[in-house]
Amino acid sequence: MTAFTIREVPDDIARRIKVRAAEAGQSLQGYLLSLVTRDATQPTLAEMADRAERYATEDIDIQDVLDAIDAGRTGR
C-alpha cells in the first residue's frame, strides 16, 4: 500500500477535518482514506461526458422510445 503525506495544511482546515472525522466516528486516517477513495472511484466529468456521448450516439429509433415509455407505464 502507498502512504501519502500532505504538507502545509492550514490550521483551520486541519481542525475542521479532525472534527468531521470525529463526528463520523472515524480516525483521521480512516476519514481521509474514505475521502480519497470516494474521489478516486467517482467518474470524472470527462468520463461522464464520454459515457453520455456513447449513449447519445447509439442507434435508437422512435419505436425504441415508445417501447420504453410503455414499459415504464406498465411498471407503475
Rank of each mutant, 00 (worst) to 15 (best):
M1A: 13
T2K: 07
A3P: 05
F4A: 12
T5D: 06
E8K: 05
D11L: 05
I13P: 00
I13T: 04
I13G: 03
R16H: 12
V19H: 11
V19W: 13
R20I: 05
R20W: 10
A21Q: 11
E23V: 10
E23I: 06
E23D: 14
G25M: 05
G25H: 04
G25N: 01
Q26P: 03
S27Y: 06
S27C: 00
S27H: 03
L28A: 13
L28Y: 14
Q29E: 13
Y31F: 15
L32F: 08
L32E: 07
S34W: 10
S34R: 10
S34T: 08
V36D: 06
V36W: 05
R38C: 02
R38Y: 05
D39W: 11
A40R: 07
A40V: 07
T41I: 01
T41D: 07
Q42S: 15
Q42D: 03
T44L: 09
T44S: 15
T44G: 03
T44V: 10
L45Y: 10
E47Q: 15
E47M: 14
E47T: 09
E47N: 03
M48P: 00
M48R: 13
M48Q: 15
D50E: 11
D50A: 14
R51S: 11
A52P: 02
E53D: 10
E53F: 10
Y55T: 07
Y55E: 15
T57V: 06
T57P: 02
E58A: 08
D59A: 09
I60C: 01
I60R: 08
D61H: 00
D61A: 03
I62E: 07
Q63Y: 01
D64P: 04
D64R: 02
V65D: 04
V65P: 02
L66V: 15
D67Q: 03
D67C: 00
A68R: 08
A68E: 10
A71Q: 02
A71I: 00
G72R: 07
G72W: 08
R73H: 12
T74D: 06
T74V: 12
G75T: 06
G75C: 01
R76Q: 02
